[in-house]
Amino acid sequence: MIREALHHITHRTQKDRTMSTTTPLTSLDGFHATPTAQRADELARSFVAAVNAQDHTAFDTLLSRTFLSYDIGGVRSRTAMKKYYAGLHASFSGLRFEVHENVGVLVENDLIALRTIVTGTHTGDYAGVPATGKAIQTSVSHVFRFRDDRLVEHWQVMDTYRILAGIGRVPGVAAQFQQLLGVPQSPDGVFVEKPGTAFDAPRSGRTVTGDESRAVGRRLYDGAITTGVAEDVDALAEEYIQNTGWTPDGRSYFGNAWAIGRGAMPDGLAVQTHVVAENDRVASISLWDGTIAAAGTPVDFASADFLRIEDGVAAEHWDTVDYVRLYQSFGLLPEDV
């Protein structure tokens, strides 16, 4: 059944692309080196389609009976996942998860990584806030483990801050955080997000392997993120693109911001729990642990990062961060959120 469903998706996708010569290419179009990786990409997209359609039958087909989903707040079974997404649909009409195609779906061994953009309209209670009729947009990043054409494990990072700030549940404090980091401030207390470079945009330089991408990602983490030295940014391109807005483009902004951030939490550590590298892309999920020195408050949040590698450095970056917990660590949001 699962193979038939995936074949249908592949056939439909290829047909759609044949009908339209203007549709940008995605990771489905020759990016993966093996049929197994191609099938894993399709499997992840089937999961997203099942979420959007609230198709519980598809969930039972796609997810193993032993399926477990983890985030920093706890663990959900297959049945709990159905309830979780049903709850989101009840809170937001027109709720849709869309694969962030400029990032693509990455596959390495038995792991799949993708970033999704989430949109909807707040028409039901969410986090104790009655319907406001406001449109919401945020991101959720995912890593799946697959086996025997089924998804068996799932790790996700969701930016709920953008939703909560959008519906007035919390104040917009992103600009205050940027002020702490010494970078230009975003309007309305929410970072401005760009879609980034199209997946099929022309590239300079030679072909990049997954191992090379993984090594660049490691250099980035071992650089300013760990040392707090602003100049430790040789893993980034001079014209590095930061698509999710917490710093402006350019590696100097990134390095200077991390020097300030590390100064605030000198014992902080980003532990990469999952890394998925394929061709010129690498994705990771990290747990952040440490202490804000001035206040003595613990650091406890998760982030997911996607990098595009070009000419031996990270040219482009997308992320999803649990900003609610991050801002709580810095004392910008109350603990009862």
Rank of each mutant, 00 (worst) to 15 (best):
T138L: 05
D305A: 08
K82D: 14
A294E: 09
V140W: 05
D125E: 15
S286N: 10
E42C: 04
L332Y: 03
I292L: 08
G290T: 00
D60E: 15
S69G: 07
S91Q: 04
M158D: 12
F59L: 03
Y221T: 13
T209V: 00
A174G: 03
A86R: 12
S252Y: 14
A33N: 11
S204D: 05
W288Y: 05
G124K: 06
N256R: 14
N52K: 06
H7F: 08
A235F: 13
T297R: 08
P334N: 05
D300E: 11
D336H: 06
P266D: 03
R17V: 11
P195F: 07
D110A: 14
R218E: 15
E231I: 13
V170M: 04
E238T: 09
Q176W: 07
F301A: 05
T18E: 13
I117M: 10
R218F: 10
P266S: 01
Y161P: 00
A53T: 09
K134P: 02
G296C: 00
G312P: 01
A235T: 03
D188P: 06
F199R: 10
L164H: 04
T291N: 05
D148Y: 09
I117F: 12
T297Q: 07
E212V: 00
Q176M: 04
E212C: 00
T209P: 09
D305N: 11
A37L: 05
E316Y: 10
E153Q: 00
E239A: 10
T18I: 15
D249Q: 02
G263A: 01
P248C: 00
D125W: 05
D211I: 01
T320D: 13
G196E: 06
V276I: 00
M1Q: 12
R150Y: 10
A113T: 01
G172I: 02
A175V: 03
A277H: 09
Y221S: 15
W288K: 01
E238L: 08
Q272E: 11
V233E: 12
T23D: 13
I117E: 15
D16Y: 07
H154M: 07
Q14N: 08
S186W: 12
T119K: 07
G255R: 07
G205N: 02
T22G: 12
D249P: 11
R206E: 12
D148N: 13
V208D: 05
G263H: 01
T320R: 07
G331D: 11
H56M: 11
L43R: 09
F31S: 11
F97V: 10
N102V: 08
V107I: 02
R96N: 10
R206A: 15
Q178M: 10
R281H: 11
T138Y: 09
G168I: 08
G331N: 09
S141L: 01
F146Q: 08
D125C: 13
L332V: 10
Q179E: 15
P334A: 04
E212N: 01
W318D: 03
I167P: 07
A131E: 15
Y84R: 12
V190L: 13
V143Y: 11
A270R: 05
A293D: 06
P184R: 01
G245H: 02
Q242F: 02
Y126P: 13
T227Y: 04
I163T: 04
I2M: 14
I117S: 13
E153W: 00
P334W: 11
A44Y: 08
S303K: 00
